[in-house]
């Protein structure tokens, strides 16, 4: 590594597992997850904070991991799609065919999980509004809405 590039020691808990790494200070949380920790479920759609496909939870809040430096996450809890293995949204997305290519899907599910937990998924208008940071270029929106609505209302099971 050349002069000027720092490699701070960062300790992060990802999906319950404690990870310690010394990475180039320029590495984003997204690239750390994907390139260094093999957690490729979190997707890069733009690397510019405009598509939502890289959404993860940091200390329970939705964060765009492409705009977050890995080193900033020292001491924090990160949850990715891999950490939501039992979430009912997964089954609801399949049932409602809430995706096509599937590339936006991890980000949609992570966002929706937070939305439901925050109690902001009660009305269709709210879901549409609060999910608008998660683009789906395949245009699965009406079906993503149906899947989220079903889980939020507790109608799944």
């Amino acid at each position: 590594m050349g002069p000027g590039v720092r490699e701070p020691t960062t300790t992060v808990t990802v999906n319950g597992a404690r990870l310690v790494a010394n990475l180039d200070a320029r590495v984003t949380l997204l690239d750390a997850l994907r390139d260094r920790f093999g957690l490729t479920g979190t997707k890069k759609g733009c690397d510019q904070g405009t598509c939502g496909s890289c959404t993860v939870l940091v200390d329970g809040r939705r964060v765009l991991s492409c705009l977050t430096l890995f080193a900033q996450c020292d001491g924090r809890q990160v949850t990715t799609i891999e950490g939501l293995a039992d979430h009912p949204l997964r089954a609801a997305f399949i049932k409602h065919d809430a995706f096509q290519c599937g590339y936006c899907t991890p980000g949609q599910i992570v966002s929706a999980a937070a939305l439901i937990r925050e109690g902001r998924a009660g009305r269709d208008e709210d879901i549409r509004e609060y999910m608008s940071g998660n683009l789906c270029r395949c245009g699965a929106y009406p079906r993503i809405l149906a899947a989220i609505r079903e889980v939020a209302s507790g109608a799944h099971a």
Binding site: R34, D35, G38, T40, G41, T42, K43, K44, T80, I81, E82, A85, L89, R90, A91, F93, I94, K95, D97, F99, G102, Y103, T105, P106, I109
Partner: peptide
């Protein structure tokens, strides 16, 4: 029928070209 590759997609486990290491 539900999409047969759905379980992989909702898990983030479907390998796209940029997931290849």
């Amino acid at each position: 029928l539900d999409r047969v590759d759905g379980a992989r997609k909702v898990a983030g486990a479907a390998p796209y070209p940029n997931d290849v290491r």
